[in-house]
Design a protein around this nucleic acid. Structure first.
Length: 482
RNA sequence: GCCCCCAUCGUCUAGUGGCCUAGGACACCACCCUUUCAAGGUGGCGGCACGGGUUCGAAUCCCGUUGGGGGUGCCA
């Protein structure tokens, strides 16, 4: 058990794990590990309607994916806020007994009505000195002291709030249940949290929570509010408008290391990144160098394009063996793994996400003899030149006897091109479209080598037939193989 | 409305008074390489929001303006 600082990550359970949450979790994790402290996971399930056991599992799985393992000695939890309901209520009563809170019988509508009549904002302290006793339907409100509250924030410095601008906020609802503000503080207190690192949106709550800590007779924790993540409209990333779910990115074939690396560079730069000319850093380096004091103060745009660039970089950095293994997960079970391994080196550097793998190599797995659906535009372009049909005809003849290696296949095409005086770049188009149905794909001769002589010749001949017979219309692309 | 935060290339950022004719990364453009597409290499485009101070000297400090964001629940 660690004795160092205690951080906490306190998500509310939903079916989705927010990428912004992933970032704050990562920051807490880096700090907890480097400082020899603890990362406490607390599920904020106060709102019972939202609580489902599988959601908690989803959170733990998501954390594990980004490298925050519940098996790590620095990990503690999960704790559940709902388990502490009694403590929250007890603390509220304690606050009432000590005179830090009072009951009020005004309903929400009545409060609004009064504010309107008085021309004030929010609750005006109507019941402050009425000495009301607890009763059903009455809310317990905190008696905000006069003066001001200074929040010492590790990323922003001191932030001063005039208490006069903070209304006597609710601690206990009319039905006796505690609100988030209170529950959050009590849990942090009970779990001996020393450092609260969370998103900037909580900054306005902080003076209220700090007053609660003090009213309860405790020193508040160290606060740190990191900037929020925003979309291209510069609005806080929201589940409704934006793609925020970590699970969505996992499904799209993003690598955990790339995601973690990218998330950490939002609002923070690894030392040495500039000199290295690269922002790609290992988690070890992050853990070693991440400091709250170095975090930027302004919101950061979550740029999927840059994430994709990182991801491509990480894919290219994998060893071939690792790449083949991971890519296999993306392939249909019936596809031959050895055949894939043969072409793998040629697609590894052409990817931005793992999800693109099947699409890059599918032509190698079409059933032998299946009709090929040619991309109309690609077909037209490849077979527009008048040399295309004769070239293909000769190529079929040549390929009947040539040794079946990429080099030989290439040499043989080059030899045939000569009389036509065309470049290899153009000459490879007709056979490529004939064999793969498209004009782009992995290197052609390597692909043919993997495909094999029989199926290659078959596809070449089928295309030739269509080219001759379909004339300029190529109407003949029969049904799709896949 | 009120409170709080923020402000360097399109984006993420380096920069903590002279090393800045502002550096890097992503994106974009061009060229090279080339077996299509990528990858890789080289180069390019592009920024200190504005106005006042302070100072010998300001992207850096202060004030104001403008702009953006967050918060203002008996949600979390």
């Amino acid at each position: 058990m660690s004795t160092g600082p205690r951080f906490r990550f306190a998500p509310s359970p939903t079916g989705s794990f927010h990428v912004g949450g992933a970032r704050t979790a990562l920051q807490n994790w880096a700090l907890a590990r480097r400082l020899g402290g603890t990362f406490v996971l607390r599920i904020e399930d106060t709102d019972e309607a939202r609580n489902r056991p599988e959601w908690t599992e989803g959170i733990i799985d998501a954390l594990a994916w980004i490298g925050i393992s519940s098996d790590d000695p620095h990990f503690e939890g999960p704790h559940f806020q709902s388990d502490h309901a009694a403590a929250h209520v007890a603390a509220a009563h304690q606050l009432f007994e000590a005179g830090h809170a009072y009951y009020c019988d005004l309903s929400g509508e009545e409060v609004q009505l009064r504010a309107k009549e008085l021309g004030t904002t929010g609750y005006d302290g109507y019941s402050r000195d009425r000495g009301l006793d607890p009763a059903p339907g009455r809310v317990l409100r905190f008696r905000v002291p006069s003066g001001s509250t200074v929040v010492h924030d590790l990323v922003r410095g001191d932030v001063t709030f005039d208490n006069a601008t903070i209304e006597d906020f609710v601690l206990l609802r009319g039905n006796g249940s505690p609100v988030f503000l209170l529950a959050n503080v009590i849990d942090d207190l009970e779990m001996a949290i020393t450092d609260v690192v969370r998103a900037e949106e909580h900054l306005p709550n902080t003076p209220k929570q700090q007053m609660l800590w003090q009213a309860l007779g405790h020193e508040p924790p160290r606060w740190a509010h990191v900037p929020v993540l925003v979309n291209e409209q510069r609005k806080k990333l929201s589940k409704r408008r934006d793609k925020t779910g970590l699970e969505l990115y996992i499904a799209d074939g993003y690598l955990a290391d790339a995601m973690v690396n990218y998330l950490m560079t939002l609002g923070w730069t690894p030392p040495g990144a500039e000199a290295a000319g690269s922002e790609i850093v290992s988690w070890a380096e992050v853990e070693d160098a991440f400091r709250l004091e170095d975090v930027t103060h302004s919101p950061a745009f979550f740029d999927v394009k840059k994430l994709a660039a990182f991801n491509g970089e990480y894919i290219r950095r994998m060893s071939l063996a690792e790449f083949v293994e991971r890519a296999s997960d993306e392939l249909p079970v019936e596809w031959d793994r050895d055949r894939f391994a043969a072409i793998a080196p040629h697609i590894q550097e052409r990817l931005t996400t793992m999800r693109e793998v099947p699409d890059k190599v599918d032509f190698l797995f079409w059933p032998d003899g299946a009709a090929i659906a040619y991309e109309p535009a690609d077909w037209d372009k490849a077979f527009a030149p008048d040399w295309s049909v004769p070239l293909l005809t000769d190529l079929i003849e040549a390929y009947r006897n040539v040794p079946w290696t990429a080099d030989e296949l290439k040499a043989s095409l080059e030899q045939l091109m000569e009389p036509h005086s065309i470049k290899l770049g153009k000459a490879q188009a007709p056979p490529r479209v004939a064999v793969t149905g498209r004009s782009v794909g992995p290197p052609l001769f390597e692909s043919l080598e993997v495909l094999g002589r029989d199926e290659t010749l078959r596809r070449l001949s089928a295309a030739l037939a269509v080219a001759i017979d379909g004339g300029g219309t190529h109407a003949g692309a029969p049904g799709s193989p896949g």
